[in-house]
Simulated assay, not measured.
Amino acid sequence: MKSLLRILLVEDDHDLGNVLTQYLKMNKFDVELCRSGDEAMKRILSQSYALCILDVMLPGVDGFTLAEHIKNKQDTTPFLFLTARNMKTDVLKGLKMGADDYITKPFEPEELLLRIQNILKRAGNGAESVYRIGEFYFDYSRYRLRLGDQQRDLTAREADLLKLLIDNKNTVLKRSDILKTVWGEDDFFLGRSMDVFITRLRKYLAADNRIAIQSVRGVGIMLEVNE
């Protein structure tokens, strides 16, 4: 029997935590629910998860601190934040930390499930695609970017975005098309999120001056590769 993917859910709202736990279990996930950041910290240090769902505001250790520990323990573990609708600064902070997604309260469990599925959709597809861009090797199936003996583990969303740019290298992609493909919808605030990810990818690729992610004003984004 195939083992269920294990998810860590950290949510101090008693009712919401119970609803999400039951809903995700109904959809074939193994869910561990923690009510506080301190409890979750102990789990993170001793367990591994396919995905972590972190409420930003928690008693004790907050969601951002938990995310830092997740990244230090295993940088490839995807995580998403649950945040209050009026805390957009928290969303930007979370994305800069490497969060794969966020969802604002209140929300329907179905929306959370779709976001989880989008993050994990390639986990079992057996893809073994390795791309060469300049001096870099990009292993999409493992979310890894390598230059010589230096290796960087990407988040799932970073990998999705980089693959889209590579598949369309030296071609300008409309911002709206990138957002719909990688984020699922074209939205102004998601556009801010995309800019954060573009900035990170630029830094990752800066070691090879033959590669550049160009912003074409009023049009979109292009991965320029001079081979």
Rank of each mutant, 00 (worst) to 15 (best):
R157W: 04
E135G: 14
Q74H: 15
I119W: 02
A123S: 14
V196F: 13
E227V: 09
D100P: 15
A67L: 01
L145T: 05
N125V: 05
S141E: 00
R146Y: 12
D62M: 00
F29L: 04
L58N: 04
Y102F: 15
R192V: 01
D186T: 15
S215I: 12
Y204G: 01
V10M: 06
F188I: 05
P109R: 09
R200T: 12
L201G: 07
L24D: 02
G60A: 03
K96N: 15
K169T: 05
M194Y: 02
K180P: 14
R132Q: 11
D139Q: 13
V19G: 11
L54Q: 03
F197T: 11
D208N: 10
F136V: 08
S36A: 03
F138K: 12
K180E: 02
I116C: 10
G126P: 11
N18H: 14
K71E: 14
I44S: 01
D55W: 02
I44F: 02
A212V: 07
Y204E: 14
L80K: 05
N168A: 02
S215K: 15
I44H: 04
I178L: 09
V182Y: 01
T171Q: 13
K73E: 00
E185S: 10
I166M: 00
A123W: 11
L82A: 07
A123C: 11
E224W: 11
S48T: 11
I198F: 07
L164M: 07
Y137F: 04
K96V: 09
D153M: 08
S215Q: 06
Q74P: 02
Y140C: 04
G124K: 14
K174P: 15
A159R: 08
K28F: 01
M57P: 01
L223W: 00
L5H: 11
T65D: 14
T83V: 12
L205S: 11
T199V: 11
L58Q: 05
T155E: 15
L5T: 04
Y137L: 09
V219E: 13
L58D: 11
Y23K: 07
K71C: 09
R217S: 13
E111H: 12
I178K: 06
E185W: 03
A50R: 07
C52I: 02
